[in-house]
């Protein structure tokens, strides 16, 4: 399932004194099975961009094409699209409403018009995918812990079996353990289902570790769109945008400044260890 964003511009409150341009001439092509990290400073337009991809916001000009069809066309089946492009909002646990966990996860597939049996099957599968044990299925979602609630909410989107899964800062407010668990779950979900994942994040470490393509947003425009290795070569520009590079890359830069002949094209701890050992001659 390919998504093409073509010269998309979006303004909030057009025609009023409060008008502001959130997205400015965005062009983007998302291929099948990619793991994209979407990063940018607060207010750079990341969240606005992902809401365009499933038709929740309508572009002011330009368009979004999914499998060749313009999703802004009259009569385009937006409900079906939202099943295929699953969007998990920030703090998704705030959307839970049902009396028990299982029913809540059923909400999405039920809206797609699936049979009762298929709905329940998908809900069960989705809850298993995010690692919620059976004993929680019939508890109130409000009695769960923060991390569990978050995973149940993500299961609510997963149960629609999206071909593209978009997560808007899914790790915000989680502790390091919860964060790693969640991101590892995402990787395994991707391996199992082959879906495309777009991860909106603030954390350079997370995207460097998981994504194979990084899109950097700055003031409503795309600043960089490349592999993590290439993007993190622009250390100074990224810093100017208030972003920076992963801590380990920063460390390599500092080592180089201190006179060690190390390479700075390093974004993970493992490769950093090898590089440092090599330079030290061990």
């Amino acid at each position: 399932m390919s998504i093409i964003v073509n010269h998309l511009t979006y303004r909030y409150n057009p025609g009023t004194a409060m008008e502001s341009t959130a997205l400015d001439d965005i062009n983007l092509k998302i291929e099948d099975g990619e793991f994209i990290g979407l990063i940018g400073h607060t207010g750079s337009g990341k969240s606005t961009l992902v809401q365009q991809l499933n038709g929740i916001l309508k572009p002011t000009s330009g368009g979004v094409y999914v499998d060749g069809a313009d999703i802004g066309d009259d009569g385009y089946d937006l409900k079906k699209l939202r099943g295929e492009v699953g969007l998990v909002f920030q703090y998704p646990e705030h959307q839970l409403f049902e009396t028990d966990v299982f029913k809540d996860v059923c909400f999405g597939p039920k809206n797609l018009g699936l049979t009762q049996k298929e709905t329940e099957l998908r809900a069960y599968e989705a809850l298993k995918q995010v690692g919620i044990a059976d004993e929680y299925f019939y508890q109130s979602p409000f009695d769960l812990s923060g991390g569990q609630k978050r995973r149940v909410a993500i299961a609510g989107v997963l149960a629609m079996k999206p071909k593209v899964l978009i997560l808007d800062e899914p790790t915000a407010g989680l502790d390091p353990k919860g964060r790693d668990e969640l991101l590892d779950k995402l990787t395994s979900i991707r391996q199992d289902t082959g879906c495309t994942i777009i991860l909106v994040s603030h954390s350079m470490e997370d995207v460097a570790r998981y994504a194979d393509r990084i899109v950097v947003m700055h003031k409503g425009r795309i600043a960089f769109d490349d592999t993590p290795m290439e993007v993190f070569k622009h250390r100074d520009e990224l810093k100017e945008m208030g972003l920076g590079v992963p801590g380990i890359t920063e460390t390599m830069y500092k080592l180089k400044d201190a006179g060690f002949p190390v390479s700075t094209d390093i974004i993970t701890v493992d490769t950093a260890v090898t590089e440092i050992m090599k330079v030290l001659g061990r």
Binding site: Q51, N54, I56, K79, R82, G83, G86, L87, V88, F89, P92, H94, Q95, F107, G108, N111, L112, G156, V157, M160
Partner: peptide
């Protein structure tokens, strides 16, 4: 507004 969007993303109408 936020919750409405989140539920719409889950197919709510």
């Amino acid at each position: 507004d936020k919750i409405m969007k989140a539920q719409m993303a889950r197919g709510a109408d």
